[in-house]
Design a protein around this nucleic acid. Sequence first.
RNA 1: CGGAGCGUAGCGCAGCCUGGUAGCGCACCUGCUUCGGGAGCAGGGGGUCGGAGGUUCGAAUCCUCUCGCUCCGACCA
Length: 446
Amino acid sequence: MRLSRYFLPVLKENPSEAQIASHRLMLRAGMIKQESAGIYAWLPLGYKVLRRLAQIVHEEQERAGHIPLLMPTLQSADLWRESGRYDAYGPEMLRFKDRHDREMLYGPTNEEMITDIFRTYVSSYKDLPVTLYQIQWKFRDEIRPRFGVMRGREFYMKDGYNFDLTREDALHAYNRHMVSYLRTYERMGLTAIPMRADSGPIGGDNTHEFLVLAQTGESEVFYDARVPELKLGERAVDYDDREQVAGICKEFTTLYARTDETHDVKVFEDQVPEEHRRVGRGIEVGQIFYFGTKYSEAMGAVVTTPDGRKVPVEMGSHGIGVSRLIGALIEANHDEKGIIWPEGVTPFHVGIVNLKQGDSATDAACDSIHAALVAAGLDPLYDDRDERAGSKFATMDLIGLPWRITVGPRGLANNVVELTSRRTGKSEEMSAAAAVARIKEIYAAL
RNA sequence: CGGAGCGUAGCGCAGCCUGGUAGCGCACCUGCUUCGGGAGCAGGGGGUCGGAGGUUCGAAUCCUCUCGCUCCGACCA
């Protein structure tokens, strides 16, 4: 992509409404524009990251055997009356009437609707297990939205629902979600720690939240310093292997890690050696629940068992806050100059800075680097504007592409360009071909 | 919803207290110079001062109402 043809409205000055780094940087980098309190337009650069995160979530969910579908954002109040949540859910549920005076709502979550879909089509144990998920916009009319997309009213979320015959099956689904989530966050370059949590309005007795450690997190967290060191890494996971999946969950949830909601000072001090005790803040980026038959009983989602009985299905629901993840990613990856994207989620793989636009040699070198990267299946952003070097560097630093290839007449005289890491700031001179090869290598490893 | 603030050009702000026909920086347009870390000079365009009502000869400025946004708190993925 040539920057001169792209739409990237970067701001030189800090918008006054932004209080935290991620919000400020997303506005300055031209990723989002606020349209109402807690409601944002996703500008091209932000939308690119959002789609990238959604893609990773999709890949990891499908890898775990979960099946994507898409439900409407608008729901009928009747469904919610069946579960009893129409009244139980507070004013953060946005309610309205259509022209026929029918009561509607903008979905804050979809347990009722998915249960309705399930009960319409499934009546035999033979069709179980099944886990369905979607990535869709949700709305919660927060009293006080803040921190940009981290605490918006409208948000993009992956929500998945498992339907199983037995509690054991449902707990396997729970474990499968935990592992697939760990893998998802790792691919995004994040360390998200599963912590025992409260179930809140969804209900249920088995639940973990996934927290990304960050100064600006909304929750206080207490954990064993060895937990953030745990990595799934490259190990092969067979999601049908219950023992393996359960083993991984145990590995990640045995050491102490809790939010302030469930924190127990006594247990913390008993279980965690003093030198490993940590208190910090975290951003919640996902939560998994096992809640059994809460909805299936209320809504008549039953299946016939092999011996002819009818039993309500065992369920759980599992969410990843996709839009909020962008805020969490930036909170965890930025410096005073701007964002620093992990390679796994960057909107463009590499930036190309032409230091002397209009100079035939640098123009030609940039064109050929750009073409070579595109031919390799990569997505470079070529700053071909007639701007001064300083301005181009500042823009690249702000939008945070992990790699930058700088092309100027001075280097070209020696047949070299400069490859710079955004994270370390370190530069290396090499031939254009070598720089392209290096970028290919970096992304091939992902 | 309780408390506190803010709405003046695309962005950041001054002007308001003490009414007199709207200003600064950045951005934008033109020209010249400059050109490896957000350039310099010169010229230029752009605002019914959030909206409605009122007071006044005269309102960005004073009064009333209203809408929007931000911050602190309770609430939340």
